[in-house]
């Protein structure tokens, strides 16, 4: 009996579901090369460099040829600023949550202490409550604390405490920690204490043992936890939406704001870049995990 035998029904259903998953993404990317500027209709691919005739009459200069909308994207200061914010937030929150989450995973897997059950439970909270609840909770916290501090210290004008990059970063660290911890914890479960004991037995102190033995062994887990945190941060909309302030707009927030007003192929170009970046990251995670296994 062939263990990999699947019925025709399953095969057809699979093809259809994959089609459902990919059609929107493909349409999105195709429209990034649209020669119509309103993006309502597909006016055909942009095929030439230099002056382009758009929507019948408008002439647009495009030195980038088919990548016209990508170049426009590059020239868009708002997009560039949002990209900078998004990356800043993602990098800082990833680095912080990886360090904190790895420490937590070690604590939960290697030690017993009084607060252990409570800690483990608290890590599951973000998974079982809707993101919006966490988002508005943090918003309430910051606004109440800021209102109090601004009043107490008579802060006014630019010195007033407001929502901005720091509040977004702190919130991203908070929701990334549980994911990093769970991933690293799963990795730690795979090997028992004896490796660390062996290192100490051979004369390595706690610190040397960590860096020479524990860390290299959990590194694949730490890296995939980090990549997970990075993608979560890049992708996040809800928490950012409630904790962001003027000047700290991220790409998802920018796109959302744009979609409520106007639609241009620039958004498609942005989406195409995004898909490419995510594709690379996911590929990297897969490679790491298959190497670890």
């Amino acid at each position: 009996m062939n263990p990999y035998r699947r019925s025709l029904f399953i095969k057809i259903a699979t093809v259809l579901v994959y089609a459902f998953l990919y059609t929107p993404i493909i349409v999105l990317i195709v429209f990034a090369f649209n020669s119509s500027r309103t993006n309502v209709l597909f006016g055909g691919f942009i095929t030439q460099f230099g002056p382009l005739v758009m929507d019948g009459s408008t002439v647009v200069q495009s030195p980038c040829g088919p990548f016209h909308w990508f170049c426009e994207l590059g020239k868009n200061a708002e997009v560039m600023n949002a990209t900078k914010n998004t990356l800043t937030i993602a990098i800082i929150s990833t680095l912080s949550s990886v360090v904190i989450g790895t420490m937590a995973a070690l604590a939960l897997q290697r030690y017993s202490f009084k607060l252990k059950p409570f800690s483990q439970l608290s890590l599951y909270i973000p998974i079982v409550i809707p993101e919006i609840v966490m988002g508005i909770g943090i918003l309430v916290l910051f606004s109440q604390v800021f209102t109090f501090l601004n009043g107490a210290f008579n802060l006014a004008g630019d010195s007033r405490l407001t929502l901005g990059l720091p509040t977004v970063i702190v919130s991203h660290i908070a929701f990334s920690i549980p994911f990093v911890t769970l991933v690293v914890q799963a990795r730690l479960q795979g090997f028992d204490k004896s490796y660390e004991e062996a290192a100490m037995d051979l004369g390595a102190n706690e610190l040397t043992t960590f860096w020479r033995v524990t860390f290299p062994m959990i590194l694949p887990g730490v890296l995939s936890g980090g990549l997970l945190a990075f993608t979560l941060s890049l992708d996040d909309f809800v928490i950012t939406f409630f904790t962001t302030g003027p000047g700290s707009t991220t790409l998802p927030i920018y796109v959302y704001g744009l979609l409520r007003r106007i639609i241009t192929p620039q958004v498609n170009a942005l989406s195409a870049v995004w898909v490419l970046v995510i594709f690379s990251i996911v590929l990297l995670i897969q490679k790491l995990q298959s190497r670890a296994a």
């Binding site: 028992d192 004896s194 490796y195 004991e197 062996a198 290192a199 037995d201 033995v213 290299p216 062994m217």
Partner: peptide, 9 residues
């Protein structure tokens, strides 16, 4: 020590 599971790095 020689460990039961060898604990080779």
């Amino acid at each position: 020590t020689v460990f039961q599971n060898y604990a080779l790095f």
